[in-house]
């Protein structure tokens, strides 16, 4: 395994290995609760909170956790923070909590979080783990914001409730329905795929040219 610099730990998850669009993790909330920007932000922040606290705890307790029960322990830790996030959201912003419904509780099974614990926090020092968790959390938040923004702008003609196109805008209802989640995710991954392909093609072109020059 290649060693990484602390800077890489942080930046990797934000864009280059974006958890949703490139690792395809955490798709359930990305599809289900991104119908408005507000919901997307609430979900992104709740997930960020759970990921950050879990990484902190897992990384600092890793020497006490026996290998055999590590997954159970991680799940226990994650579930605790999810329950906390659930209760705090319900008490502080009940309207948002009503919209997000069961999906807050489902953060427990967001493989992105467990994945970071198993792949990173359980092996690396606390500082690095927090960098990694912050980067991944921000990446997830960005992904949720992109999806939420796209869907709310098209589906309601608003951004964070602010009207963009005037009152006679015809909303694309499908975008705030579940089908719109799949469509949006498809659109964005199409863009990522296109970009990757272009990059590979360019790299190949370059190496071909170099090969010709040297030969």
């Amino acid at each position: 395994m290649r060693t990484t610099t602390p800077k890489e730990d942080f930046t990797r998850g934000i864009w280059r290995e974006n958890p949703v669009f490139l690792q395809m993790l955490g798709l359930c909330p990305a599809l289900a609760v991104t119908n408005t920007v507000e919901n997307a932000i609430a979900m992104g922040l709740a997930t960020f909170f759970v990921l950050f606290c879990s990484s902190l705890l897992v990384s600092s307790c890793k020497s006490f956790i026996p290998h055999e029960v590590r997954i159970s322990t991680y799940i226990l830790i994650i579930a605790t923070f999810v329950t906390l996030a659930d209760m705090v959201l319900e008490a502080v912003v009940p309207e948002v909590h009503k919209e997000l419904g069961a999906f807050i509780a489902l953060i427990v099974v967001n493989c992105m979080i467990l994945g970071r614990q198993e792949a990173f926090a359980s092996k690396k020092p606390v500082g690095r783990s927090l960098l990694d968790a912050t980067g991944t959390g921000i990446g997830f938040l960005i992904a949720m914001l992109m999806m939420g923004g796209f869907r709310e702008v098209l589906g309601m003609g608003t951004f964070l409730g602010f009207e963009l196109f005037g009152p006679s805008y015809e909303p694309w209802v499908v975008m705030i329905l579940p089908a719109g989640g799949f469509l949006t995710l498809g659109f964005i991954m199409l863009g990522f795929g296109y970009y990757e392909q272009r990059k590979i093609a360019k790299a190949k072109e370059m190496s071909d040219v170099e090969g010709r020059v040297t030969s």
Partner: peptide, 10 residues
């Protein structure tokens, strides 16, 4: 189908 889902009124 897309139009039906997107613009159910129209």
């Amino acid at each position: 189908a897309f139009l039906q889902a997107a613009f159910p009124v129209a």
